[in-house]
Design a protein around this nucleic acid. Structure first.
Lengths: 254, 254
DNA sequence: ATGCCTTTGTGAACGCGTGCACAAAGATGG
DNA sequence: CCATCTTTGTGCACGCGTTCACAAAGGCAT
């Protein structure tokens, strides 16, 4: 059974660290804002605060792209916008398909941040026949049957999955089979893909759970363990510890 | 300009590394699925593949929580579900507010993954007076004027921002002022918050840009190796990366 | 009870990412 | 042309996260 090999062990792509790549869009956004205000140049310090990062980190990130700054002055905004765009591959047009036009899929279709960054929604696809033909964000929803044809006809290599969890893997398989090699997954499932296919996942629930953890910790510091907290099981070696099926409280499942 | 101190330098909370905390929801989801199938125990290897991670990493993650496994057998599913839920703070009820009921806000309001994990949508808030009172996901949309009252009345400590970028910082300030200490930000902006407030951001456009980077790189490698079927034409063939002032097209400013 | 087999828990090594601090590079003014 | 000042680019050290590899621990059969 094909185990999901999703991780990229040392995707240090071509000398550009993954962490740096993840920050480039952040810099690009800040630079675009400066560009719209017709700011000609910007120092690493200014740009760093605008992007919410450390200035040393920003300079090191840029050093992976090349020496695009001028000492004593800073960086030319327009020039840097272009260099980062090129490095990220945004100077070309990326057709994407969005599969699963529920609330989230519709929100994505209407999201303006795509078109402005070189991404073009080639098609909206849904499995519900009743949705077919309905216009969403100015595009008619296509039925899943057409998926393969849409992919090949438009040369789509990036797919967005916004289906329920149960359908995600099946949709993913079809996308990959049709030629998609990058997938943005919003369904709360671990996708299994063959080598060479990139998957990034966005899970709304997971983000909230991480926040809850820190929130609990903050609250716990104020009032030390309010609710009756059964203290962690003392790891007494050999002692009759946790009853595997005895003391487990009622926890609601999904 | 008060720089937003959003990063957590060494938030090694109570000995639990941040990276581990980020994976706990993943484990929890896999365990919940097993629980629904009434699977009594699971080995680290099985659970790891289900969650899409390395088994050694999973065991080390769990070791931060305590010794909850049984050697030679594995982990008790129900017991582990409870322990992780407790550690994440999901055994209590977390009221959240969603501000900005556009396409995305509505999608979030309808998202089932919240309620099932201990999160309760206390209110939907929007600045548009025309939206006020309209039911979305079974809840009437409230106007922004009521924001502070809603926060305090419901004891909300987690807020979700799904407004346009321009309104995000203002909304954020009001949330924080009213007592919110954890924020999930979907607006494409860097939020500036005081010490003690956690911010996590989800940026759809950034994820796509990261995918585009890898996609471009993959296309470049293909084109370099086999000139058979160049799917996407890379900007510069041969992948020579830096050409500081060589092939720069029109965008060049100064 | 004893030995074998399975699986956990973890010590240790390694690699990546971050931040400091400073020398080199260029602009600017006299 | 030289001195000074600003800002970049980076060598270096440190800490976190990941992975390996194995001893310890428990179950199970005999």
């Amino acid at each position: 059974m094909a185990t999901g090999r999703t991780h990229r062990p040392a995707t240090r792509s071509r000398g550009i660290p993954e962490a740096t790549v993840a920050r480039l869009p952040l810099y690009l956004r800040a630079l675009t804002a400066l560009s719209e205000r017709s700011v000609p140049t910007v120092s690493s310090e200014e740009l760093a605060t605008a992007a919410g990062v450390n200035s040393a980190k920003l300079r090191k990130d840029f050093s992976y792209l090349g020496s695009y700054g001028t000492r004593g002055v800073g960086y030319d905004v327009e020039y840097l916008v272009y260099q980062i765009s090129r490095e990220l591959g945004l100077t070309q047009d990326w057709p994407v398909v969005i599969v699963g036009i529920g609330n989230l899929g519709a929100a994505l279709a209407n999201y303006g941040g795509f078109a402005s960054r070189g991404f073009r929604v080639a098609a909206l696809i849904d499995a519900d026949p009743a949705m077919a033909g309905k216009p969403v964000a100015g595009l008619p929803v296509r039925h899943t049957d057409e998926l393969e044809a849409i992919i090949t006809d438009n040369g789509v290599s990036i797919g967005v999955i916004a289906t329920p969890a149960g359908a995600a893997q099946q949709v993913c398989d079809r996308l990959v089979e049709a030629g998609v090699t990058s997938i943005l997954n919003f369904a709360p499932t671990v996708l299994s893909v063959p080598e060479g296919v990139d998957v990034r996942k966005v899970d709304l629930s997971i983000e909230l759970q991480i926040l809850a953890f820190h929130e609990q910790r903050k609250a716990g510091e104020d009032a030390a363990q309010t609710a009756a907290t059964p203290p962690r099981v003392p790891r007494t070696t050999g002692g009759g510890r946790k009853g595997p099926d005895g003391d487990v409280p009622a926890v609601m499942p999904a």
